[in-house]
């Protein structure tokens, strides 16, 4: 039979791991949000619910693939490093993916899907964005979804701002028509009902 001391010591180790996993996520995210570089991505939202974490706006990035060099071979699910570039409208787009992080400039560490050639024969890799959910108050999330899909004049433009540091991106804010979502919902209270 295990002694009390030993059991307590082992349990303390397990407890510390539990704290480290939950707390580590806080530290990583805070670092990225406080010191990371800010980018804006185009998105397409919908509103589902998660049994544990409540309602969220599911985020589908308008860009979900990155170009790759002709000679790069990747197995699916491997990590790739994708530099972030800015397009003419000031929104973020993905640069050429590689297996090593770029020497300079901001980048994201992403999971690769398969590599395919597009219509012009250029090779690209599907990537899965690590930030795919924007959690919201359970009353506001459905309204936010309707705000984006329910406009009379068709779909409104939606985007998220993401802070990026050392390959880790953390969502900062969700925008509808360039207005932060909470502000938009407050201003358009009647329409979003």
């Amino acid at each position: 039979m295990m002694g009390r001391r030993l059991r307590l010591a082992l349990f303390t180790a397990v407890a510390l791991v539990q704290i480290a996993v939950a707390g580590g996520a806080i530290v990583r995210s805070e670092l990225a949000l406080r010191t990371g570089e800010a980018f804006r991505f185009h998105i397409q939202p919908v509103d589902p619910v998660d049994a544990f974490r409540g309602r969220y706006v599911a985020i589908r990035f308008a860009i979900d693939r990155a170009p790759v060099a002709d000679d790069l071979e990747l197995r699916p699910k491997k990590r790739v490093f994708v530099p972030i570039e800015i397009d003419a409208d000031g929104f973020a787009i993905l640069g050429q993916a590689d297996v090593d992080p770029p020497a300079s400039g901001p980048y994201l560490r992403l999971r690769a899907g398969g590599i395919y050639p597009d219509e012009e024969g250029n090779r690209f890799v599907w990537v899965t964005m690590p930030f795919r959910r924007y959690y919201m108050d359970e009353d506001l999330a459905p309204k936010a979804e309707r705000a984006v899909w329910g406009g009379r004049r068709g779909q409104r433009e939606a985007s998220v701002s993401v802070r990026v540091r050392d390959g880790i991106g953390v969502i900062e804010e969700l925008y509808v028509d360039d207005v932060p979502i909470h502000q938009w919902l407050a201003e358009n209270a009647s329409e979003s009902r």
């Binding site: 539990q18 996993v21 939950a22 996520a25 806080i26 995210s29 949000l33 998660d50 049994a51 544990f52 974490r53 409540g54 969220y56 690590p130 930030f131 795919r132 959910r133 924007y134 959690y135 953390v170 969502i171």
Partner: peptide, 16 residues
């Protein structure tokens, strides 16, 4: 609860 609230606060943690 801890994992869920951290995920929720920072919009991280991916799928269910």
């Amino acid at each position: 609860a801890a994992l869920a609230l951290v995920d929720q606060t920072y919009h991280t943690g991916g799928d269910l």
